[in-house]
Amino acid sequence: EGALGYVREFTRHSSDVLSNLNELRLRGILTDVTLLVGGQPLRAHKAVLIACSGFFYSIFRGRAGVGVDVLSLPGGPEARGFAPLLDFMYTSRLRLSPATAPAVLAAATYLQMEHVVQACHRFIQASYEP
């Protein structure tokens, strides 16, 4: 006893896990929900959606979310605002342009992704400054 235990921390682990999850998404492996956004079907993992979005957390955390494997978002975000958010969830990179920022902001608000909402506001604010 008394041997000094120590921890090896693999600092890339979280980004490596996320990168593998994105590869699973792109190949349709273990994706368990189809999101109909603006009529466009997008496959994803509920676990990733619930981890990243307050809206999906409220939908999938309860028993009601168990059987749901197709989810349409009527009156919800348009695809051009939603798709960048789905990519963000799986890559940590949010692609914004002056043309898409308002749609991404609307989608992030709908999905209750407050930190992304703030980043969109900062981007839009900055793009108006001379």
Binding site: I50, A51, C52, S53, G54, Y57, M89, S92, R93, R95, S97, Q112, M113, E114, H115, V116, A119
Partner: peptide
């Protein structure tokens, strides 16, 4: 031709925190 992409690092929290089991 894709526009030039500037990357801005956001150091703060990125997503909500799932509440710990009460």
């Amino acid at each position: 031709h894709e526009g030039v992409v500037a990357t801005v690092k956001e150091a703060g929290r990125s997503i909500h925190e799932i509440p710990r089991e009460e």
